[in-house]
Design a protein around this nucleic acid. Sequence first.
DNA 1: AAGTCGGGGAT
DNA 2: ATCCCAGACTT
Length: 368
Amino acid sequence: MYDTHCISRGQWRLLHEWFEREARDLPWRTRRTPYRVWISEAMLQQTRVETVIPYYKRFLKALPSLDALSRAEEDTLLQLWSGLGYYSRARNLGKAARVIREEHGGRFPSDPAVVRRLPGFGPYTTAAVLSLSRGVDLAVLDGNVIRVLCRLFDLDEDVSQGSVQRALQALADRSLWHGRAGLCNESLMELGALVCTPSNPVCEVCPLSAGCLSRKAGRQSELPRKKKKAPRPFYRQAVLLLLNGQGGILLRRRPARGMLGGLWELPSLRGEALERRHLPSPEKDLALQLLASVFSGSPPKKDPEFIGTLKHEYSHFGLRLESWKLEIARSVVRESGPNERWVQQEELDEVGMSASDRKILADALQAR
DNA sequence: AAGTCGGGGAT
DNA sequence: ATCCCAGACTT
């Protein structure tokens, strides 16, 4: 499709020179072992560098080696991941580490086909880890590279189309300077992150501006072209802080797969969809239903106390979280099953939880 | 090809 | 309020 286009050696030289001069000093750029690069790439999927840095440091400190990762409990991984989102990434890290320990002698494989089959390794992560840590000649295609390529060659097809993705991957493959794959990949992504940004690209300082076709046409800011996403539905959801009078809060564990899989959460109940994102103040009905479900039909006589609302947006739907508090007497405290536990407030940091529940708890306990 | 899966920062 | 981010997996 774009077979006439290719990044020239001269352009690579300009870009590499720029990278040597301007590259950020990031924790995963020192000592590029496959393990260290892998953890960074897993965390960086759909996540900004600034967000990742503290998580990365904490993770490497807790689990400094592939062997340590392969022996870590899933709860430990979810705790280290708590707040980062896309928790299947954390679960897949453990799975892949165990496969490497059991089937590859604990050494990170070098064969791209083998790596690609590991849980959590798609085309991007396979190419990134192997090129950056082992110098394997594989070209990455991520959001940054897509943007830079579309602008550099003034490509205005819809990049969400599979055919266009394949053509861009082929262009990246063809452009790769063999023997310098890691540097090519990283400099291209760094350019996308620092200069060729989604809005307001800084073309004045771009090492590739002289040959940039979209800039010549004056439409670099309109690229890459992609179709708009569908509007997301919006629901109300009641959330319950059930306190046992001794500093304990009831948490439940979510199913191992799916949304927020394996994480602990406050008991909650999804309500009906909202037409508008603004609605009159929450009513107690949903909270009472929730309470009934928690106590399986015979809730305490006392009514829960309203704490507040919090809006939370996920990638494909939004929530208005309506949180309620109820302190129950010791005689009323229900037994907790295997997927439930009473957690002391001081222990909350040691539990893998979603960002929204952590915020609700922080707000509620702060106010006490 | 389309939907699922988090969360936060920039605009 | 919308978009975007060093994407992968399921259907």
